[in-house]
Design a protein around this nucleic acid. Structure first.
Lengths: 340, 340
DNA sequence: GTGAAAGCGCTAACAG
DNA sequence: CTGTTAGCGCTTTCAC
């Protein structure tokens, strides 16, 4: 036993340990570990080898503490929202391109958004990015006072808070235009209840229907963000004497529920009824689903969110970036029954 | 302007700022912020008030750096795996019960597991909990050398690595027993391809079928963890002269794809074909789905994972905890066609 | 009940 | 190319 490979049971090697083992100063080890110029090739190799043997991993916490800026972005997201998953994945990439790390804080039925946000704050991230937040104006304002804050996929009038979102009114209008062009006259919208963006989508639906002279057959149902909400709404619609020939759902999850009920009750899609989702999340892309949906392009939103957050950090004024969504025509929409 | 409410543009107030504003030492502020005894009620109130006005939030990083133990658990999970979402939610709760924080590191198509694990290591969490890891033996061993490591829902023989999982063989056997009791003779299993646990489930399926004397009509298809895999498998089965009357899918996502194809092609569930999922994730619980599935009880797995990880931290030997799953009978299984 | 001082693991100037 | 010194924001003795 030479005592070099100190298989520590509980305590992990520090930079000082590596320096000692290599017989040099910690500063030099730091230079090597960061890969910055200032060490000879020989030293570099030797230190790296020793560090690896010892199982040394730099302490991110100490590192960030020492640096003036933490280069850390905080993100809250909903664990069970596929579109949030898409966004988070893209945010990792966008942040990495700028040399930023990301710290995640999840929201779930048993973990409130305010808890999640609090955790971020304590991590001292330079900015907080909230996906589809449901925070009240009050709390949002408080948060914004604590540090740069940016909302994704939700609007707010709270000053100082950045916003990155798709144009919800335009998005739903795209869906309605598409359906109208296919000859649909009786179209229903299963909305997102109180969810972020749902009032815009509702409004966009009504306006677009009006533009096509279909205001009288426009129908809006209280829905939600889940498959259950969609399923419930669709069952309700099917109970009518004359169900609509097309449904615009609040999001892909909701549309999935709609499709499920239709399949189950033996209604052909799109032969009998057409369905449009929203988000172009992974749910819409499955080969067996091929859902027509409105794409928010997670990559672009993520990119804008990260750059918007960093703008806030740099002291620039909060802004609202609204992205034009586009329709992705897949297999769940077709001509209205009896239409050429 | 009294200069007290320093609406700092970029820099956040530190403990020293609060101490200065309150005219006391930082040590005392620390006592107050942590809520430990050692300060008069009057001081406590005053400091809390001042801190709040200044928007002061303790720096978690500095705090953990100073404390000998970080009381931090790292968790890697897949962003698009609903069951992982369930587990993460429960892990938050289990960790909180022990006064531990959780740091998340996501795995996604564009973010490899090794990247995610590396991020955890640098965060200096006391232990790493990997959900459904696909890491190779080599890498797992390396990781285990770096710090306490625990696998959830996956087995490994790497020494020193803790394991918490459901009994996959027994779980699938439960499904087969249930179906056999309902009179099904021709049952197929759409497996998880190379996913963690899939070989056990495959084996459990074959063994259980053998026990019922059904080895000749037991059929195993290469599947996967996604809806697409399930859909593809089911379509393949339906193309047969005599499709099976029941399908055991690798997981709920896979089963969802199966159900979708069946609905779409007009096959009654469970009238014509019964379907069993695995995980009892949110996908199985939807009112419109009501999927019969094998429950792994996320809460119990999470609890065991956290306590197992802390055991490792405490220096206790790595162990494997295997939990007996149970069958949740819902609406996607019923008597085989022609069976009493 | 309160304060002074040391130091967690690291990086950022500077010297040499 | 390499070492010394200081200190990031906090907690922790140990005095008073």
């Amino acid at each position: 036993m030479t005592g070099v490979t100190e298989e520590a049971g509980g305590t992990r090697p520090t930079m000082a340990d590596v320096a000692r083992a290599a017989g040099i100063s910690t500063a030099l080890v730091s230079i090597v570990m960061r890969g910055v110029p200032g060490a000879s090739e020989a030293t570099r190799k030797r230190v790296l080898k020793i560090a690896d043997e010892m199982g040394y991993v730099p302490d991110q916490r100490a590192r960030k503490l020492r640096q003036s800026s933490s280069r850390l972005l905080g993100v809250t997201f909903e664990l069970q929202q596929p579109f949030h998953g898409d966004l988070v994945e893209q945010i990792y990439a966008a942040a990495a391109r700028r040399g930023y790390d990301v710290t995640l804080s999840a929201v779930a039925p048993s973990r409130e958004e305010s808890t999640a946000v609090g955790a971020l704050l304590r991590e001292r991230c330079e900015a907080a990015i909230l996906l589809g937040s449901r925070l009240g104006t009050e709390e949002l304002a408080r948060l914004a006072r604590r540090g740069p804050t940016l909302l994704v996929a939700r609007h707010t009038d709270v000053p100082g808070v950045g916003v990155v979102r798709g144009d919800d009114k335009a998005g739903v209008a795209l869906a309605v235009d598409h359906l109208a062009a296919l000859g649909h006259r009786h179209i229903a919208h299963i909305d997102g209840a109180g969810a972020p963006g749902s009032s815009d989508r509702r409004l966009g639906f009504l306006e677009a229907m009006g533009r096509h002279g279909l205001q009288d057959s426009a129908e809006v149902l209280a829905g939600g963000l889940t498959e259950s909400a969609g399923a419930q709404g669709m069952r309700y619609l099917l109970a009518r004497e004359t169900p609509p020939t097309a449904v615009v759902a609040f999001n892909d999850r909701c549309a999935t529920g709609v499709l499920d009920v239709l399949g189950r009750e033996g209604h052909a899609v799109p032969g009998e009824i057409s369905v449009v989702g929203y988000d172009d999340s992974r749910l819409a892309k499955f080969p067996h689903v091929q859902m027509t949906t409105v794409s928010q392009d997670a990559a672009r939103l993520a990119e804008a969110a990260v750059s918007g957050a960093l703008d806030l950090v740099a002291g620039r004024e909060a802004s609202e970036s609204v992205f034009a969504p586009h329709l992705v025509e897949r297999a769940t929409t077709g001509p209205a029954p009896g239409h050429p």
